[in-house]
Simulated scan of single mutants.
Amino acid sequence: MREQVTMADVARVAGVSTATVSYVLSGKRPVAPATRAAVEAAIADLGFAVNTAARSLRTGRSSLVALIVPDIANPFFAQLAATLQEELRGLGMHVVVCNTRADREEERALLAEAVQQRFAGVVITPFRLLPKDLDTLSTAGIPTVVSADVPFGPVDLVTPDARAATRQALEGVTAARRRRIAMIAGPRDATGGDPRLELLRSLAPQFGTSLPGALVVRGEHTREAGAAGFAELMSRRYPPDAVFCANDVIAVGALGKAHELGIDVPGDVALVGHDDASFASLVRPRLTTIRYPAEDVGRAAAELLRERFEGRRVPKTVRVRAEFVARASV
């Protein structure tokens, strides 16, 4: 039987240290192109593969990282999953995507499963969880990264820096002489409230407008909720002339309802989404939105996990810059 090829074998053939081989595999430190090429050639020649089974026996953990999201059908989360998988591949980790349908009990059940299966790490976008719900992961010693708009207890956090982008969106809307601003927001019981609504409300007075409660409707982060919310807003005695949406999925639902009602976008009402999902530039009119780059979120989450695997103990927050993307719906 052929002996198992080790990292030391790769290092010997490539003429480098085992630490350098590790850096090439994990990507955690830069390696000179010529050195990387030598290591990759040795890996190919020897047929080396990371022995995840041995590592699992040694550490008591699997090689799996759970990505827990509220809606895998949303392209934002699909791109997040793809990026996270790509970033963790060099560590010999694999991503398992778990869809909660924004249901609290499903979120809690998946946390329990991650503990039971001894997952190597968890990246989660909580929708109805409470910070204390993550205590079970902390107790089990499972590194956890939360992707959310607000802090979520003493854990690593990836969060948007959307203030400048939201200000630009308001500037664009008000420059088009829109003053009666509304929002289709998320549900009241969502984790951390609705910080996108609060940010918009806090900035609106700087542009000579406001966001009164009468022009805020709430619902799930779905196309159906977007359509229903838009219809409700347009039925007001004094309907808005600009509608912001908590995400692009909601915005597309609102856009479809506008077509159905014979309301012109942007002629009668401007429409602004959030996230810049892949379909935002494909619908007609093309959707003006606030881009929150899923790729950057995925890379940040992977880096935070890598640091935890290497022994970092103090919680860390990474802010990902959002960008205003002006298209045809304003």
Rank of each mutant, 00 (worst) to 15 (best):
R321K: 12
K28V: 13
A120G: 07
T6A: 10
A300Y: 00
F76W: 06
L91M: 12
C98F: 02
G121H: 08
A38V: 02
Q117K: 14
A242H: 04
A294P: 01
E323G: 01
T136V: 15
A185G: 05
P315V: 04
P70C: 09
R218P: 03
I290E: 07
V265A: 13
I142F: 05
R223L: 11
G208P: 03
G208E: 08
S329Q: 09
M7L: 13
V123G: 00
I68A: 06
P187L: 05
P160Y: 15
L80T: 03
D45A: 15
R89W: 12
G256E: 13
F309P: 08
Y23Q: 14
F119C: 09
R196K: 11
S138A: 15
D149E: 15
R180Y: 00
F77S: 08
A300V: 00
D296W: 02
G172M: 04
Q79C: 02
R108G: 07
E307R: 15
A242Q: 03
R29H: 14
D133Y: 08
R167I: 01
N51E: 06
S329P: 01
L57W: 01
L282F: 12
D161W: 05
S26E: 09
H259N: 12
R167W: 02
R55E: 11
L67G: 04
E198Q: 15
A37C: 07
V249P: 02
R286K: 13
A81Q: 03
A225C: 06
D156E: 11
A8Y: 13
E232P: 00
R306G: 10
N51P: 02
A112V: 05
A140Y: 08
P239D: 11
L305A: 08
A114L: 10
R128Y: 04
R218A: 05
A82V: 06
A140N: 13
A300E: 00
G141C: 07
L287Y: 05
G229I: 12
T144S: 08
G192N: 11
R89T: 10
R101V: 00
R12G: 02
A73F: 10
F77V: 09
E310D: 14
V243R: 04
A204P: 03
A227L: 02
V249D: 05
G208Y: 07
V96W: 05
V314G: 03
A42C: 09
R306L: 10
T35Q: 09
F76G: 02
R312G: 00
V320A: 05
E224F: 03
V96C: 08
V155T: 12
R2T: 11
M183N: 10
S63T: 05
L203M: 04
V97L: 12
M234C: 07
S26F: 06
A258I: 05
S26Y: 04
E113Q: 14
A231Q: 14
R319E: 14
E87N: 00
P131G: 10
T209M: 06
A78R: 01
D133L: 03
G253C: 04
E310P: 00
S147K: 03
A44I: 01
L197M: 11
V217P: 08
E40G: 09
D268M: 07
A302K: 02
D156Q: 07
P70W: 07
T209N: 12
A81K: 00
I290N: 03
G186P: 06
P151F: 14
L203I: 00
D264W: 05
